[in-house]
């Protein structure tokens, strides 16, 4: 029988970690939840500082948020992406260099 909730592992890096004060955590979402639902959950949990890093003022994904789902880069702005139980999300601020 399918569960009506899913557990998602979230890992924060760089200044996102400073906004959450945790390296990683497990969150529980309704089955079929999207990436947007996960990010909304995190913003509600950790407050406005993190929300600013996750969302633009118009509610779209922040322009410099980088998300990996199971170590695959999520195309920018694809907040409708459905998540599955056991997924791992890696959240970074966009930085580059080398």
């Amino acid at each position: 029988m399918a569960s009506d909730v899913i557990a998602i592992q979230v890992r924060y890096h760089n200044i996102l970690r400073r906004a959450t004060d945790v390296d990683q955590e497990t969150i529980t979402l309704a089955a079929g939840a999207s990436l947007r639902a996960a990010l909304e959950h995190l913003a509600d949990r950790h407050g406005p500082r993190l929300r600013e890093m996750l969302f633009a003022p118009d509610g779209s994904a922040a322009s410099h948020l980088v998300v990996f789902r199971n170590r695959q880069l999520v195309e920018h702005g694809q907040l409708h992406l459905p998540l599955a139980a056991g997924d791992e999300l890696l959240l970074f601020p966009a930085v580059s260099g080398g």
């Binding site: 760089n14 200044i15 400073r18 922040a62 322009s63 410099h64 601020p93 966009a94 930085v95 580059s96 260099g97």
Partner: peptide, 9 residues
């Protein structure tokens, strides 16, 4: 928007 992360680390 990239400044805070580059400055921090």
């Amino acid at each position: 928007p990239v400044y805070p992360a580059v400055h921090a680390y």
